[in-house]
């Protein structure tokens, strides 16, 4: 009975399959099963302890200074854990698309400069985070 020769391509395919299954399994089992605190903060804990901060959050937390004009208010509400209508009230937003409205969209709607609007949003978020 003729034996099929095992070529380098066969071995490579086998290595790739094993690697894929291993990485898939590690991802599936170690990636976030969020803790209660993380769920409450809308953050998922990082998979490996050495990558966690003491607060169990990603290394680079979003801060008001990292927000951008392309972000939607829905996203901002989520990442800063803001009450749904907080920004709507504090920035006097009347656009019906809120919270599915970008900072840029708000600037256009209010006929203002995008940078100026961004500063206002940053300030409003900072005020909330500082408990003002």
């Amino acid at each position: 009975m003729p034996h099929k020769k095992i070529t380098r391509d066969h071995l490579l395919t086998l290595v790739i399959i094993i690697l894929t299954i291993a990485i898939g399994a590690v991802t599936f089992f170690l990636l976030p099963a969020a803790t209660d605190e993380a769920r409450q903060l809308h953050y998922r804990p990082l998979p490996f302890p050495r990558w966690r901060t003491q607060q169990n959050r990603p290394l680079a937390l979003p801060t008001p200074s990292t927000i951008a004009v392309w972000m939607t208010f829905d996203y901002l509400n989520k990442i800063f854990n803001l009450p749904p209508d907080y920004l709507k009230t504090s920035l006097n937003i009347t656009d019906a698309r809120y919270p599915f409205l970008t900072v840029n969209g708000l600037a256009r709607e209010q006929k203002q400069n995008a940078t100026g609007t961004l500063k206002m949003v940053e300030q409003a978020i900072s005020n909330h985070l500082n408990g003002k």
Binding site: I23, W51, A60
Partner: peptide, 15 residues
């Protein structure tokens, strides 16, 4: 493999 690695980097680096 590539998507997993890139998404993981994004997941870790965040802001």
């Amino acid at each position: 493999l590539v998507t997993l690695i890139l998404m993981y980097i994004g997941f870790v680096v965040g802001g």
